[in-house]
Design a protein around this nucleic acid. Structure first.
Ligand SMILES: [Mn+2]
Ligand SMILES: [Mn+2]
Ligand SMILES: [Mn+2]
Ligand SMILES: [Mn+2]
Lengths: 238, 238
DNA sequence: TCATATAGTTTGAGCCATCAAACTTGGAAG
DNA sequence: CTTCCAAGTTTGATGGCTCAAACTATATGA
């Protein structure tokens, strides 16, 4: 007990790779949960560890003031934890953008690459990258890139399932990093920026009919369409 | 004992970050030692650990067939270890080149950055980087970049101390990654590619006088001059 | 030849991240 | 109310990397 080893008199928890991955997971879970808290089992699943391991780690994060949590309760980021998570997101998304824009890698594979590189890039390299890319505001999947002050402008846009048939839309964001799904999306011309028209909705079949500009119309299950966000565009303006 | 955990039936040693750093250190030491072997204490110093730790690790590398070694003997890379080391060198140097060429970072700071990134970059990203850079053959310090087959074309060039006074030379390589030294070299116009003239040698003072094109002449201790490699250029050709 | 200093080795320990498996809690369902 | 189960927690262990400190081999030189 009473570990007397720390060189720094303060914070017992470092920004290790594991810690960064947990913080990102907790950030994502809090944001999509109704309560604003992350459940232990969800954290474990997302990070890819057993729940016991997640519990142990969350206790360390608590000691390091990255999260607030008590036994059998939900996990929530502190301001410090939120800042840290957003910083990692910035690194992740700038790297993805670089891989696609500068190195011409396929947008469906860059997530996995960024998952490792995000932990190895320094602030100096990151800012140089940002400058080189012209300070982009969204990554290849349409995810917002936090600015260097930690500000995040969450992209507007609703699910494809939320538009009435006949609407013309511009795809703004794909909310799923699965390689297969991303490849499918690209194959049918539905990447961020693409223009498409909702042809019809078929509630009994739980799917919609959609047609991207220059692509044949396809049917898309609600589950898939729900992960594609878009904005309506007036039929007139370019 | 008898750890029954390995998923793979073979190789007990992975390509972990620590392993990669040891391999690079051993590679460098073998190459500059007269015997072609690396001493344990040198390995420890270069990696930044105690000699006991180095001994432990070298035993693991031996088990993984990366090195040949026996108690109280020198350490030498196997063919497998040599390939691995060269692969890491390729990653390191391509990353340094990218940081300077594409991101415009100062050549004196990129070594430290590459030291971390080299462990996080995948083959796919590496080859994309290589292509983007136009398959460069040397890094910003003049160090040769191994090709994707593992071939290394060691740059020619002798130490500045090896030229007679009056010789005009083109700097080809700086054999030292120290940030201070690199900044000093740049400040006096002696980066790889620069043209300079050996003005005089002063053996009693253990230094030489040198003058880079467009820079005032300076005196350079043998120790420093020895880390700058150059090739003679004829007084006539451009 | 022998002593000794230096280089190298070994051992016991700790930290980090993880797992498996035993255990506990709290809420939902009867 | 009870009961019971899913979710969460604890514990004991392992693997990887490291250190400090005690120990040992080897080469040199007296
Ligand atoms: Mn990651
Ligand atoms: Mn993304
Ligand atoms: Mn390294
Ligand atoms: Mn270099």
């Amino acid at each position: 007990m009473m570990s007397l080893h720390a060189a720094t008199p303060e914070s017992p928890v470092l920004a290790t790779e594991a810690v960064e991955n947990y913080l990102k997971a907790i950030y994502a879970l809090c944001r999509e949960s109704a309560t604003g808290e992350a459940a232990m089992s969800r954290i474990a699943t997302l990070v890819g560890v057993t729940t016991g391991t997640a519990t142990t780690m969350v206790k360390k994060l608590t000691a390091g003031k990255f999260v607030r949590y008590e036994r059998f309760g939900g996990v929530k980021l502190t301001v410090k934890g939120d800042k840290a998570a957003i910083d990692i997101l910035r690194r992740h998304r700038l790297i993805e953008t670089f891989l696609v824009e500068t190195l011409n890698l396929d947008w469906s594979v860059v997530h996995a690459e960024a998952e490792r590189l995000e932990h190895a890039i320094s602030p100096v390299v990151l800012e140089a990258l940002d400058k080189h890319l012209g300070h982009p505001s969204v990554d290849p999947h349409g995810d917002p890139i936090p600015d260097s002050q930690g500000g995040v402008r969450e992209a507007r846009g609703k699910s494809l399932t939320d538009f009435p048939p006949g609407t013309r839309v511009r795809v703004s964001r794909i909310v799923d990093q699965d390689q297969q799904f991303l490849a499918f999306v690209a194959k049918h011309g539905l990447k961020p920026g693409s223009i498409a028209r909702i042809v019809a909705a078929d509630p009994p079949a739980q799917s919609i009919l959609i047609e991207a500009r220059d692509y044949p119309r396809i049917s898309l299950a609600f589950a898939a369409a729900g992960k594609i966000l878009a904005e309506p565009i007036s039929t007139f303006s370019a």
